[in-house]
């Protein structure tokens, strides 16, 4: 069987799940120092690619990202997680390119490297680069299947995937490869439990970066000069405000101290409650009483 080449598109996004610097609410461009992370859905796509590779012994994964320094760091994490290769595309004239230009740049990479299967996340946490996969697929003449819940199998040049439709409906789709498949994030935080040698290798190896000219593109076609849509201002979504985690006041002072020492940025927290149905009901009523949501 021929080797299956998988490419995963990785986008870096601003983490809007943590408190953002206040500038963000003003009419200013995005300030430095905001937290850039791998788009969680793209990370999930990478995990799917790794699973596929484990199932089919002959395949290799290349992670592709378009972006500056932050993209390089994202790609290194992909290498640490198990991708064989990483490729960064960046060019000064891409800074102000629109989604069409960026999509063309990614399409050029895909056309040259000819992967069989291209995966990415369906949607972006910050909504900024959500159009990119669709544009890239169309510019490269690839089939594009968005809204995919899972990949069932890949064989004989075909992929069978399950798509999510409205109201919980599902459809099974068979698509001829090469194709770009956008996978919906299944929740969870991107984590990486790479081993130390792998991590060091990922963070010390040279990371190739291709400019537009290497891809046979000109700034007029793909860069800012070719942009039909110009970004005048960017404002990211408001943060989901974190509830401060305050330790249980019934604990002794020393234990409370220990609990809060972790410190740092607090992600949005939920509460999982367990118990008999009666206990659950009581807890839910208590929750509504204590929150200014409804009057009970």
């Amino acid at each position: 069987m021929r080797k299956l080449n998988i490419a995963v598109l990785i986008r870096s996004v601003v983490d809007s799940r943590v408190p953002l610097p206040p500038d963000v609410y003003g009419e200013k461009p995005l300030p430095e120092g905001m937290i850039s992370i791998v788009n969680p859905a793209d990370w999930f796509a990478l995990e799917c690619a790794l699973n596929l590779r484990n199932q089919m012994n002959r395949s290799q994964i290349v992670a592709i990202a378009l972006g500056g320094e932050e993209a390089e760091e994202s790609l290194r994490w992909c290498l640490a997680a198990g991708a064989e290769r990483a490729l960064r595309i960046w060019d000064r004239s891409l800074v102000e390119a629109d989604q069409l230009g960026r999509g063309k740049a990614v399409a050029a990479v895909l056309t040259r490297s000819k992967p069989d299967l291209i995966l990415c996340g369906d949607g972006c946490l910050d909504q900024i680069n959500s159009l990119l996969p669709g544009v890239a697929a169309s510019a490269a003449g690839l089939s594009y299947v968005p809204g995919v819940a899972r990949i069932e199998k890949v064989e004989h040049g075909m992929a069978v995937v399950v798509r999510k439709l409205e109201k919980g409906k599902r459809e099974r789709v068979m698509v001829k490869l090469p194709a770009l498949i956008a996978i919906e994030e299944a929740g969870g935080v991107p984590s990486c439990d790479a081993d130390l040698p792998g991590l060091i290798a990922a963070f010390t190896q040279p990371m190739p970066c291709k400019g537009l000219s290497c891809l046979g593109l000109s700034p007029e076609r793909a860069g800012s000069r070719g942009a039909k849509v110009n970004n005048v201002m960017t404002r990211v979504s408001r943060p989901i405000t974190a509830r401060p985690v305050t330790p249980d006041h019934r604990l002794p002072a020393e234990q409370r101290l220990r609990k809060i020492l972790a410190g740092g940025v607090v992600r949005k927290q939920g509460e999982v409650i367990t118990g008999t149905p009666e206990q659950l009901a009581d807890r839910i009523i208590e929750f509504f009483r204590s929150e200014p949501v409804v009057m009970l």
Binding site: P19, T241, P244, L261, V265, V266
Partner: peptide
């Protein structure tokens, strides 16, 4: 408006 909360030794 409350934005963030943290603790440290």
């Amino acid at each position: 408006r409350f934005l963030e909360y943290s603790a440290h030794l």
